[in-house]
Computed example of a mutant assay.
Amino acid sequence: MDTRKKGVPLKTSMVQVSLWLSPFFVACAIYFLVWIPENHQPWVNALVKCLPVLCLVVFLWAVAPSGAYTRLLQGALVCSAVGDACLIWPEAFIYGMMAFAAAHLLYVRAFGLSPLRPGLLLYLFLASLVYYSCLLPHLEPYMVLPVVAYGLVLTAMLWRGLTQGGCAAWGALLFTFSDGVLAWNSFAWPLPYAHLVTMVTYYAAQVLLALSALGSLGLKMH
């Protein structure tokens, strides 16, 4: 079932959309300027890291038409913020993965199953199989099952996002790329500028996914 409602009028103009997006970009700038230095308290790091995503929750409340699609996106963003916070503490890594898995499931529900495009799912599954066959040997045994489960959910989100096109497709693709860089850097071997690449693509993915609530309802975002 497609949760988006075609033809619902937007609450705001493009100018107002830009104004409501400005807190997100300010929060991103603060994050990259502060850069989570180790001498800060963990709760400060968590707040700074989560703030851009929480700004997108408010953005959708302010400008997007009410409906299931918008509510599911907001739920996914809140789950993502929880995941962001958990990843500040290494001992909470599993909980962070669980929160992000919940976010991806909400995105899948938002995108729906139409058009189905099973052939695309097969290609994505094969690509994921290659990636995870290289990653899994680097994992501790207790991490294999959670990472495989998360990978399946992430692949499903990418599949459904790509079938929608526009901002949803680009957002899903960037989210998957961000997670891929994060996992490889965390478990396999360090990558140059991994943190910068991970967070830039992650925030870009989230804002594109949020904008899909507007693009699918009449505002041209692609």
Rank of each mutant, 00 (worst) to 15 (best):
D2I: 00
L51V: 08
G215S: 13
A81H: 09
D179K: 07
L54S: 01
A68V: 13
T163E: 07
F93T: 00
A204P: 03
V78N: 05
A85E: 03
Y132I: 06
A85S: 07
A85F: 04
P65L: 14
G119V: 11
C79S: 08
G112N: 02
L56A: 02
V15W: 05
L106Y: 11
G218D: 12
L209A: 03
C79F: 14
Y203E: 03
A103I: 04
D84Y: 09
F59Q: 02
V153S: 04
S66V: 12
V147Y: 04
E38H: 15
Y123D: 02
A103W: 10
V78C: 12
V130F: 15
G7S: 12
T163H: 06
V200E: 04
L154S: 05
L72C: 13
W35C: 00
F25Y: 13
A103V: 01
P137W: 15
H40Y: 15
V144F: 00
G161Y: 14
Y142L: 12
W159H: 11
W43L: 15
G165I: 11
K6H: 11
F177T: 07
S22T: 13
G215V: 06
K49R: 08
Y142I: 10
I30A: 13
T163N: 10
F177W: 13
V17M: 13
Y150N: 04
A62H: 10
V57E: 04
A156R: 03
Y131C: 08
D2G: 01
L182M: 14
P190W: 09
W35G: 00
H40R: 13
A168N: 10
L129M: 15
T3G: 01
L54F: 09
A204D: 04
R160E: 03
F25K: 02
Q41T: 12
Q206S: 05
A62V: 08
L105W: 15
F100Q: 00
A183P: 07
L122C: 13
R71T: 14
V148M: 11
P115V: 01
H138C: 12
P190S: 05
G166V: 09
W43I: 15
F32W: 10
V200W: 10
G180H: 01
W89Y: 13
T198K: 00
A110R: 11
L47H: 02
L51Y: 08
Q16G: 09
Q41W: 15
C167F: 09
Y142G: 09
F111L: 07
A149E: 04
L139W: 10
L208Q: 05
L72D: 10
K5A: 15
L21Y: 02
P141M: 01
L51N: 05
D2L: 01
A127F: 14
P137M: 13
A149N: 00
L217Q: 15
C134I: 04
V197K: 01
A149Y: 04
C50P: 08
P115R: 04
Q206F: 11
F25T: 04
L122Y: 11
L209P: 05
Y95V: 09
V78K: 11
P146L: 07
Q16V: 14
A46S: 12
P52V: 00
G119H: 15
L10Y: 06
L129Y: 10
A99V: 03
R117T: 03
V181W: 13
C79Q: 03
R4E: 09
S212C: 04
Y142T: 11
P65Y: 13
T201S: 12
L121G: 08
Y150D: 08
R117W: 07
V34K: 08
V148A: 11
L174R: 02
S212K: 03
V8H: 03
Y132R: 00
